Simulated assay, not measured.
Amino acid sequence: MSPTHLSHLRLPKRHFHALDLSRLLAAIMVLFWHYQHFFVPPVERHFNVNRAIQPWYDTLGWLYENGHTAVQYFWAVSGFVFAHVYLSDPRAHGRFWLARVARLWPLHLLTLGLMALLQGIYVARTGTEFVYHTNDLKHFLLSIPLMQYWGWQDNQSFNGPSWSLSTEILAYAVFWLALPWLRRAPLAVALPFGAALLGLTLLSAPDKDVLACIGYFLLGTAAYGAALKRWLRPASLLPLGAALIAIAFAFKAQYRGDDAATIAGTFGVLFLMLAADMSDDKGRLKFGQKLGDASYGIYLWHIPIQLALVLLIDSIGVPRDIARQPWFMLTYVSTAIAAGFASHAMFERPAQKAVFALWARWKTRRT
């Protein structure tokens, strides 16, 4: 299949810089959601934290309470970006999984091993695990291939946030298998299936997190299909995005409206970011690409950094209430963000190149 034959499946923009920037902001949202972990004592059960004790709660309360919704946003953005990258690529089927392994696994395996070590130290000191308690051999072995949240898990384990990567692997598989049909009609294929899966999550179907991930991903792909048809332009994206965000707040005010609010809010923000990108003819948002590169590192490094800080303050006899101080929160958030940038430049990119080089060398030897 020639590139020319598939050229109609790619929007003219090479990069979506506002989306890149939004990925960084979404990763930072997760930092605030997990900040509550600093106040969890060494207990062998779930512990509810009074989030109002966290620094600057009056100002940052929405982030502390809703930062977890960034995960769904990541899924939707991934669906849009994958459609942009792979629908028009005639070699997509052959190199898809190599690119995924090179991008995801090196940092995942590094932080998985580090969390196993840090949790071992924490257990030796306290007699129980830090926040994530299902750190047994079964979940470690499942975590290596990112299969730890496919429905057979007891709970989140080790580097807890990696659960969302585990579900996203299944969304990648669906996308990869559906590529021939998505190329024929990306909107017509992705929209009904994505909407149906999210509908099942609203009904609390079994394994709803897996269904939700695939649903968000496919609706992100559907958004790309709608953009290809020129149905989504800045003139329509702005009012549609604003309306969806207003609907999200309305759902949030209703009992049991959280999942519906997250769906509406996710695509409201996605549409507003797309409007910004499509209006950016002069490339003023180009800086967003490099900022977005840090999001994966921030996401996987922030829990190991958090546990390392807890071990440090416990070892020097400082009460964990020190986390109520704004300077401590700013130090933690800044450290996690810096780790994301350093990780991308010093580990993730070199690791990607190494994986591609090893694959090329292996192919050469076989031929």
Rank of each mutant, 00 (worst) to 15 (best):
F217H: 03
D89L: 04
W231M: 05
T59Y: 15
L146F: 01
V123G: 07
L218E: 08
N159H: 04
Y216W: 13
Q289Y: 02
L237N: 13
V318P: 04
N50M: 13
L200C: 13
L270Y: 02
I303Y: 06
A246T: 12
P41F: 13
A227T: 13
V49W: 07
R256G: 06
V49C: 04
Y224G: 07
I144D: 04
N155C: 09
L218H: 02
Y296W: 06
Q254Y: 07
S279Y: 08
Q72I: 00
A360V: 08
V318Q: 13
T262A: 11
W176S: 00
A227V: 01
V77Q: 00
L118Y: 12
L19S: 04
F347Q: 02
T201G: 04
R256E: 15
S143C: 07
V174D: 06
M115A: 05
Q54N: 14
A308N: 13
H46E: 14
A248G: 12
R95Q: 12
E348K: 02
A264P: 08
H133K: 11
A188Q: 15
L203H: 07
T134S: 12
Q54D: 11
A196Q: 03
R361I: 00
A188N: 14
V269M: 08
Q153R: 09
V310N: 12
G257V: 11
Y57V: 05
L31T: 06
S295Y: 00
F130Q: 01
A26Q: 01
V269Q: 04
A190S: 15
A308Q: 06
L98G: 11
H344E: 15
I305S: 05
A250V: 15
N135E: 04
G199P: 10
G265N: 05
N135K: 03
L165G: 00
A360E: 15
R365A: 15
I298E: 05
A227Y: 04
L203Y: 09
H46K: 08
D280T: 13
R366G: 07
F96C: 03
A99K: 12
A195N: 10
V85Y: 05
A26I: 00
W105A: 00
H139Q: 08
K282I: 02
L187R: 11
K229F: 00
A253S: 14
F175Y: 13
L211M: 15
T69D: 07
P304M: 06
D20I: 08
S343A: 06
F16I: 03
D209M: 09
I303W: 12
F32M: 10
I263R: 03
A354Q: 13
A188S: 13
A275L: 14
H93I: 10
A83F: 05
A275S: 14
G151A: 13
P3Q: 10
G194W: 05
L272V: 09
V123H: 12
R51K: 09
D20L: 02
A195C: 05
I247C: 14
W150D: 01
S164T: 06
T4P: 04
H8R: 14
A345S: 12
S236K: 11
M1H: 08
Y299V: 05
S162A: 09
S22N: 07
L9E: 12
L237Q: 13
H8Y: 08
P41G: 03
P161Y: 02
F158C: 03
K286V: 14
A178N: 10
G194V: 12
V355Y: 01
R349F: 00
N155Y: 10
W181K: 03
P41Q: 09
F80M: 03
L211Q: 14
P3D: 11
L274F: 11
